[in-house]
Write a protein that binds this DNA or RNA. Structure first.
Lengths: 236, 236
DNA sequence: CGCGCGATTGATTCGGCTCAATAACTGTGG
DNA sequence: CCACAGTTATTGAGCCGAATCAATCGCGCG
């Protein structure tokens, strides 16, 4: 991975800044961030980092999509969540001072900024709004994880797949034709749902037959989101 | 629930303080905490709080054991984790400014201190060590949740039960006879493992037959922890 | 244009859930 | 301290969702 300071825009005028955890940074803090960060690129399929390792900082995603996953006991990937432009990844390991609990891999070509952990700690100690924002993001994620745990334990594969489709729509949005703006293999979908690839395939074609979705190769279009919320027992 | 300021010791000389998130509070901060907190008691079985509600602060557990759980789509409890003396609960909802994502209920008689959220926010803004500690705890919990998600998706019930027994030992310890220092119904164990009550019962008696554990009514003694780690595919 | 991975479909197996019937235990009040 | 009532635990039988295994298809890419 090449790292440089010039390939991506300064943090001050980064288009993702206002939606990111850095939204509340002051002018001089942003300048410092720009000065300390470096940039990197990952091709589709490459690992950004691997679980159990440690990083000297965090990544801010400038463009591209990323899957966060853990290896199960038989070496099978379990996708925990996705990340996209504007998200910061790898920070939990820094803040809890533990090795990474997940790996991250690029779903398409990805460009990132790397922020040294010292910048985080420095900013945490002087900018309360930043602290609050970071806590908010972290604590929100715990709530999401609690929901996933309950779903995995209690819902059927059919229900979980319906919900996953809605999550993908929510997370990545749709292109101008209405297809989900993310390209995943059936195996990756299965890994996120927590089931076998064949089960995903069978249920997808069932949803297609029911008119809930349209399939075009690897691309998925959601036709009846409301039906999926019903099938998936999705309340919130 | 009765609330008073005198029933429990001051925070300064609370025996759990040094292991809690309040370990790094300064003298005057501890005095302020003592002044602002109130105390409460819950009988076994009572709810401390319910998911989707909001609290004006957080609870510190002074004594007793608590289950944290979520209601699944069919109204079935999913136990996410346990909490015990020294733990702070309910803070994630405060910090993410969202309704609670879990409920909490007393597993035995519980006494708690209630800390208004303003104290938390005030202390976050002036005590960096407290901030770091709180972040550390929250981020650690995310890592744990990631592990649980992977286990639920990929391990068998047998493996998960073996691991749960070890988690219970780790969390609550053993009494002088070697029995787990927590009294759970089979249904609660099942709810934590993410399976049916009958499956827990069958597998427990299997573990007993294999000599891994001893059962005495509701009480469980772990005889061969190492065998359980093998059966449960527990690496860390 | 062919190679190879990913997708699909079918057949079969099986872990684990549900339902049902006792048995054992907990704790409660007399 | 005992009896009773209501839980909770146990065990068995049967079923079903979903995993696995096997084979073929088809698209994307070099």
């Amino acid at each position: 991975m090449k790292m440089s300071k010039t390939t991506l825009p300064n943090c001050q005028n980064c288009s993702h800044r206002t939606q990111s955890v850095f939204a509340d940074l002051r002018k001089n803090e942003l300048e410092e961030l720009s000065a300390q960060k470096s940039c990197g690129f990952f091709k589709k399929g490459q690992y950004i980092f691997q679980e159990n390792s440690r990083l000297p900082g965090v990544y801010c995603i400038h463009s591209g999509k990323i899957k966060m996953f853990r290896m199960g006991p038989e070496g099978k990937e379990q996708i925990i969540r996705f990340a996209k432009a504007g998200d910061m990844i790898g920070y939990k390991s820094i803040l809890s001072d533990e090795p990474l609990s997940v790996s991250a891999a690029a779903l398409d070509d990805v460009s990132v900024c790397f922020v040294p952990k010292q910048f985080l700690f420095d900013t945490l100690s002087i900018n309360n709004m930043f602290t609050r924002k970071l806590m908010e993001v972290a604590c929100h994620e715990i709530g999401e994880a609690n929901k996933i745990i309950t779903n995995l334990a209690q819902k059927t594969v059919r229900e979980r797949l319906a919900e996953v489709l809605l999550i993908l729509k929510e997370t990545f949005g749709e292109d101008n034709e209405g297809f989900l703006e993310v390209k995943l293999t059936r195996e990756e979908i299965a890994s996120f749902v927590g089931t076998a690839t064949e089960s995903v395939i069978r249920l997808l074609s069932e949803f297609k037959k029911d008119g809930f979705i349209e399939l075009k190769g690897r691309r998925i279009k959601i036709l009846q989101a409301n039906q999926l919320t019903i099938v998936g027992n999705v309340f919130d």
